[in-house]
């Protein structure tokens, strides 16, 4: 029996390999050989391209209250990340209205950045070593920590109550999945395409808690008062602005913009507007 299933799976593997060879033959005939379309033909830097174009194309979340949320009432996208985008446009282009926003999700933001759809990602994105291999990051622009959102009255009051029997909701491509799997080995994690889907699923009772950065969770709790954030944050999630790998001049321009925002007090204003308190200085 065992032998047979092994034989079957190796037959399957052979099938997969041959079909794949066919598929890639089809796509490569049309595709040319250049591995990355954007960087080779763009001898000029991304920063020059932005200045020439006159607009900053920024990937932001549309589903994350406080950071980037599309408000059905006004049709506008609003939040901390959006204000940062406008402030950086002012710093780089001299006009804060020269921003084009594009919706990203945790799953789509790195591909979209690498494909050149957007100049930068300002979308609650934690700086990690693994991601640094894919993209470049600015300095930290927001300090978050991972936490848990539960229905009020839940038996879960912190990370210590999470066991292998707990079902946790998260968003595909988020660091919070690795963190919670490391903290609670064997915990069941259900991953959704974006936070709205995950929150919808939590509300439908499909799991016990939703995990991601506390800042995002506070936004959800503000959206629906039947839900609350519990326990102390159990990880450090420093947010950075992601920029395509190798675009050092753009990273420098963004870092300079961030430093200016902090020194002239504008950063504190934006922080207070969305988070409701002064940022902790470290």
């Amino acid at each position: 029996m065992k032998k047979r299933s092994k034989k079957m799976s190796s037959a399957l593997l052979a099938g997969i390999v041959s079909v794949t060879a066919l598929l890639s033959a089809c796509t490569s005939t049309g595709g040319g050989t250049s591995a990355s379309g954007g960087s080779t033909d763009a001898a000029a830097s991304q920063l020059d391209a932005i200045k020439e174009r006159g607009t900053l194309v920024v990937g932001v979340k549309y589903d994350t209250k406080l950071f980037g949320l599309k408000d059905p009432a006004s049709g506008d996208v609003e939040g901390f990340d959006i204000d940062m985008a406008h402030a950086l446009a002012k710093s780089i282009l001299g006009d804060e209205s020269k921003v084009e926003l594009k919706e990203v999700t945790s799953k789509t933001r790195i591909p979209m950045l690498n494909n050149g759809d957007i100049d930068m990602v300002i979308a609650t994105m934690t700086i990690t070593d693994a991601r640094k291999k894919e993209v470049d990051f600015s300095d930290v622009y927001f300090q978050a920590g991972q936490s848990l959102l539960v229905k009020k009255g839940s038996s879960i009051t912190g990370i210590d109550d999470v066991t292998a029997d707990t079902t946790i909701m998260a968003a595909k491509g988020a660091t919070s999945i690795d963190n919670i799997e490391a903290k609670v080995p064997g915990v069941k994690v259900l991953q959704f395409d974006n936070y709205q889907d995950a929150f919808n699923a939590l509300k439908a009772g499909q799991g016990d808690a939703l995990t991601t950065d506390d800042a995002i969770l506070y936004g959800m709790a503000a959206q629906d008062p039947n839900y609350e954030v519990v326990g102390e944050p159990f990880s450090d999630e420093p947010y950075g602005i992601a920029i395509k790998k190798g675009e050092t001049t753009l990273v420098e321009a963004v870092n300079k913009g961030l430093a200016d925002l902090k020194s002239d007090g504008q950063y504190n204003e934006i922080y207070k507007k969305w988070i409701g308190k002064e940022p902790v200085t470290n």
Binding site: G15, V17, V19, T27, K172, D193
Partner: peptide, 22 residues
Amino acid sequence: DIISSDTYVTFSTYIFAAAFYL
């Protein structure tokens, strides 16, 4: 989706997925 999120490899991940479907 999970594999491509973990590895940041999109093209190969979905080509193999396509092969499984085919």
